[in-house]
């Protein structure tokens, strides 16, 4: 499973890294540091990835079965 964080949509609500600090981190403005990135989530972090996606008020985090063509 791939996690993808939309840099345009992310507005720095900080819910994702609060619920999943082992997967995501914050920058000094409060945005998720990994915004704009897409990477494969190891199986043991899948639950965290779902938690993070479910916590975001901007729907900025997507979980994808396959890597997007442009990643």
């Amino acid at each position: 499973m791939f996690i993808s964080i939309d840099a345009e949509k992310c507005m720095g609500h900080g819910r994702c890294y609060s619920v999943a600090p082992d997967l995501l981190s914050d920058d000094d403005e409060g945005f998720v540091a990994e915004r704009g990135r897409c990477w494969q989530v190891p199986d043991e972090q899948l639950d965290l990835a779902y938690e993070a996606a479910d916590a975001c008020p901007e729907s900025a985090i997507a979980l994808l079965e396959t890597a997007p063509a442009d990643a």
């Binding site: 507005m11 609500h13 819910r15 609060s18 916590a55 975001c56 008020p57 901007e58």
Partner: peptide, 21 residues
């Protein structure tokens, strides 16, 4: 409640509340 933090009490988009944290 699962996913309560998706609430929009602090707004959203570029004007989302500066003071939320």
């Amino acid at each position: 409640r699962h996913g309560a933090s998706t609430h929009l009490a602090f707004g959203g988009g570029p004007h989302r509340c500066l003071g939320m944290h």
